[in-house]
Design a protein around this nucleic acid. Structure first.
Lengths: 297, 297
DNA sequence: AAACACTTTTCGATATATCGAAATCTACCG
DNA sequence: CGGTAGATTTCGATATATCGAAAAGTGTTT
């Protein structure tokens, strides 16, 4: 058997958990209950991570927290990933310019991982932190799939509960088309959408509750299907509450390397939405070009 | 058996290797030969790391390189490690002020790991890169041991080849005392010292050659024992070539959390050496204070 | 001071990852 | 276009990590 390497997978899970909870310290049993890893196995993995300096153990409290080794690793990863490095810098200056929250995220497997957060949102939204991992279930992840081959879009849709998959398969192609056409995604703020975000966050935070929350999520997505969440046509004179504007940064292969998100715009006219979107899109194109990427087609 | 978790240890080794070689891509067999991990086992671990986004695989070339996940992890580690974060910022401004190379490093087990490098050295020295790991064998690591309990100093000395251990045990207590007294370490540049650095770097780079290089290292350390490498008394009017000035940043428990190193000063008077050292020491004390640390005693 | 509740560590049987070698695949070269 | 050298992937026996549960340790409460 060659696939598993169970202990390495555990090491990854543990590191991801610490990445999502910066500055926090956890005991062995907290990690055991949070991640569902057997105590003895978790101990072995924690010792290996400690030996390498990825975690340090407080000798009295017997808690683990992040050590210095990931700092060097993160530095190396940033050097090898020009797009993220540039995106961080650009988002920082955009945050000053726009006075709202800006986020850089990437897709890893079937999850979105937050890599940078700058500024604060105008609208109260689900709180976003670096290291957060959210399962990329529609409508989350539109920019990551707007330029994808049909097979990948299908895999994305298949993550939906089967009760809502049918209607999603009807609506989503049009919205993905609108995103492709416009170059960025616009989603409207609504209580339903906020609750979807909260639920996904809660599922990520408490993996043990995930099965219970799936039903709830399915209902919310079904409800969202009835609303207009992805804005297809923008009227310049209507006032909107915007949940997110998202623009893609492409890599050399024409795939979405990083997504730049502008979060929570309160009561803005369609005209202004267009201005924000174009500005965000221009930054995304700049980062694409400077990092050696190219748009598809 | 609870100690091993072999696969987790391999994951750590592989990540360390990538941390030390930023932006580089490696094939399975390159990693296999470089790290001495069985091909099949290495493949399993690499797949686990890839699933988590710590590595990405180039589908054509079949090479692995760092993915985006370590960026989030590094960010979290920095948030939890105020001392390193502050040290990086302070070293950056010092590099502008001093026009030489400045380095932040930490001790992990029996190794020193480089976490930040700013500026360029005046003297040609072994090249220093973020992520580098060097086995901390005397004379390397003086600041990390100047305030340590005797047992740790002994463990450090025991890493020396037994042929030179005896003389080192005679000389080092005095030099550690001088470091403690002065608050920072001063080591002189010499061909022997440079070659020790090169050899340690080479051992870290090619673990397979390490046993062959141990003899060479022992000879060099023996030769260094004859020279004056740690400067005990500084004459204000003599001109020195300085290899390193190193000042400690302490954590809340009074242990050395980070070492700040100023590398390669060419032809400076003793008076100037003192100025540099005091400035570096002042920065180290500032970082200690701001990060909530305290000096021992 | 003693019992309690909790966490960490240890332990032995079993399932499984690891190892070395062989088989397959890929790309280069004649 | 066929051969070859290198790499990747697969395979089966063996060593070993994993699991559940019990033991030892730690700090708190009564």
């Amino acid at each position: 058997m060659v696939r598993p390497a169970l202990a390495a997978g555990r090491a990854v899970e543990i590191l991801n958990f610490f990445a999502a909870h910066p500055g926090q310290a956890y005991t062995l049993s907290e990690l055991h209950t949070a991640l569902g890893i057997n105590l003895a196995s978790a101990l072995a993995v924690l010792q290996a991570l400690e030996d390498g300096g990825y975690l340090v153990r407080h000798p009295r409290r017997k808690t683990y927290e992040l050590g210095p080794a990931p700092i060097a690793l993160g530095d190396a990863a940033l050097r090898g990933n020009r797009a993220v490095d540039l995106a961080r810098a650009e988002l920082r200056s955009l945050a000053g310019e726009f006075d709202t929250e800006l986020v850089a995220s990437v897709a890893i497997g079937d999850e979105v991982v937050i890599l940078a957060v700058e500024g604060r949102p105008q609208l109260a939204s689900a709180d976003v932190r670096v290291g957060q991992r959210l399962r990329m279930v529609p409508p989350l992840g539109q920019v990551f799939h707007a330029w994808s081959p049909p097979a990948e879009v299908d895999a994305w849709l298949d993550r939906l509960d089967e009760r809502v998959r049918g209607t999603a398969r009807i609506h989503l192609p049009a919205t993905l088309g609108a995103v492709r056409e416009r170059g960025y995604s616009i989603t409207l703020d609504s209580p339903t959408r906020t609750r979807i975000g909260d639920t996904l966050e809660r599922m990520a935070e408490h993996p043990r509750e995930a099965p219970l929350l799936r039903d709830r999520l399915a209902e919310l997505v079904a409800a969202l299907g009835e609303e207009e969440y992805e804005l297809i046509a923008v009227d310049p004179d209507t006032t909107y509450d915007i949940s997110t504007l998202v623009a893609p940064v492409f890599d050399a292969a024409g795939r979405v390397a990083v997504a730049l998100t502008l979060n929570g715009l309160k009561a803005v006219t369609g005209r202004r939405v267009g201005d924000y979107g174009e500005r965000l899109g221009a930054v995304a194109r700049l980062v694409t070009r400077r990092s050696g990427g190219r748009a598809p087609e």
